[in-house]
């Protein structure tokens, strides 16, 4: 089971990494990198590093990639949304897919209310204290590595000030 998940995710990760390098359009590259980062997050989950999987999605796929997409949009002006729509059939697909997603969420919510079901609270694994678990990471981060943890906040502050200085327009 775990091996099957690993193989599928590994293939997707390698394919998206290759696409990042081979596609000419940087915005496609950025989106493939998001796929790749998501795959690595799944691998973290497989390895039992839940905290890192969440941090990966929030920091990398969320914050860093938004920054990248923003920079690409600013530096490389794209085409406007005008003229005939080449993706019309795909866009028509979006409405049934959205309804399907709503149905799925409703099913999961209904399952959790009745206890059992697909996404019920009973089916969630119990998170206990174990080596490499989220609690031991927290204890290390705010215990043994507290100094390094605080230093990173200074690093982020320095990066913030540096970016502001670099991005400021010279006003005469």
């Amino acid at each position: 089971m775990a091996l099957g998940v690993f193989l599928i995710v590994a293939i997707v990760a390698v394919a998206s990494a290759l696409a990042l390098v081979l596609r000419r359009n940087p915005i496609h590259g950025a989106l493939f990198l998001v796929v790749n980062l998501g795959c690595v997050a799944v691998l973290y989950l497989l390895l039992g590093a839940e905290f890192l999987a969440l941090a990966q999605v929030i920091i990398y796929a969320g914050a860093i990639m938004v920054l990248f997409v923003f920079a690409i949009m600013v530096l490389i002006p794209g085409k406007e949304e005008t003229g005939p729509d080449p993706l019309r059939s795909q866009r028509l697909m979006a409405v049934p897919l959205g309804l399907f997603l709503l149905l799925e969420i409703a099913l999961v919510l209904w399952g959790s209310r009745s206890g059992g079901g697909v996404g019920g609270a009973a089916s969630l694994p119990q998170v206990g204290v174990r080596a490499g678990g989220i609690e031991s990471v927290g204890r290390l981060l705010l215990g043994d590595y507290l100094f390094a943890f605080e230093v990173t906040s200074i690093l982020l502050l320095a990066a913030l000030v540096g970016v502001l200085t670099l991005a400021k327009r010279k006003s005469e």
Partner: peptide, 29 residues
């Protein structure tokens, strides 16, 4: 079976975030 590697990776992520911000600012400049 140790959590120290995860702490290290967490710090790498933080530094990567700072690096991306500064690097993109340099590219824009």
């Amino acid at each position: 079976a140790t959590a120290e590697a995860q702490v290290l990776v967490f710090f790498v992520m933080t530094v990567a975030a700072a690096e991306v911000a500064v690097g993109l600012a340099i590219i824009v400049a």
